[in-house]
Amino acid sequence: MDRKILIMKKLALLLIIVPAIFVSCEQDADIELPKTEPELVISCFVMPQDSFIRVKVTLSAPVFGNGSNVQSSEVTNATVTLFGNNTSIVLPYNANEEYYKINTAQFQIQAGNEYRLEVTDTEGRQAIATTQVPLLPPIGFSCTVEDSVEYSDPNYEYGRSVYRYSVQDFSGGLNYYRFCGYTRMWNSSLGDSLRLNRYAEIFSDNSADGEILTGSGESWYQANLPNDSIMGYEVWMLNCNYDYYNFHNSLYNNNQGGDPFSEPTLMYTNVEGGLGIFAAANAVKLILPR
């Protein structure tokens, strides 16, 4: 299957090259270029189930510019304000995590409410985004995981986990869901369990309104024995809003850019005056044993 695609791509390139053989000239484009100034990029996802709210703020690098690359573009001294619940709060920058962060004890995300995020930096840029939290968490979420060890020795183990999940769709209207599955691993140096090897999938109830939606996926896990050990799995089902769904959909589609005949996929953004995403979901979580 991949081989076929590869060959088709070869042919596709031939199709483009042959006409170009016909006397083609290359030169710098003689045209005014699009925006050449960096913009604020916000990234924030909120759920009523969260204990912490985190906002990432970076700068975009204009494509046409002076040796610009997208590295070390963190914005560390911006003013990040979250509005909602008839009040507002400023999120301070946490240098360790490189996020603007607060504890939800100070500001609780509530189901059904609308929130607005405003970010202003020291150079006069301002970006604003609003999103609304879905009212209900998903219903009828169930999941099983099938484990199979591929390799095992006293120091190292890795294997496959196959998730099978189902959720009852809300009837009426378009609904969006995301499934996330993690392996829960005990990390002895931290003294805590980590969620790793995330498998995620986003989908909607497009042609199956009100029915039970099912899906499956697989992921790999590995453990450095004997200190680390796989304790089990943690699976999430999120009822996402429109912003959340469109963003993840465009992000996942973005990866397939090899075909010279396909249109570039646009990234979804709901940020005014900038780029990025501010979205929300309402989730349920299940802890599954190994």
Binding site: P34, F52, H248, K285
Partner: peptide, 21 residues
């Protein structure tokens, strides 16, 4: 027109004080 970095949502991070994965 521009290039930037952005990642998917990590639901588990919302409940953990350890940094986002």
């Amino acid at each position: 027109q521009a290039e930037y970095q952005i990642g998917e949502h990590d639901p588990a991070a919302g409940q953990s004080n350890i940094s986002v994965n």
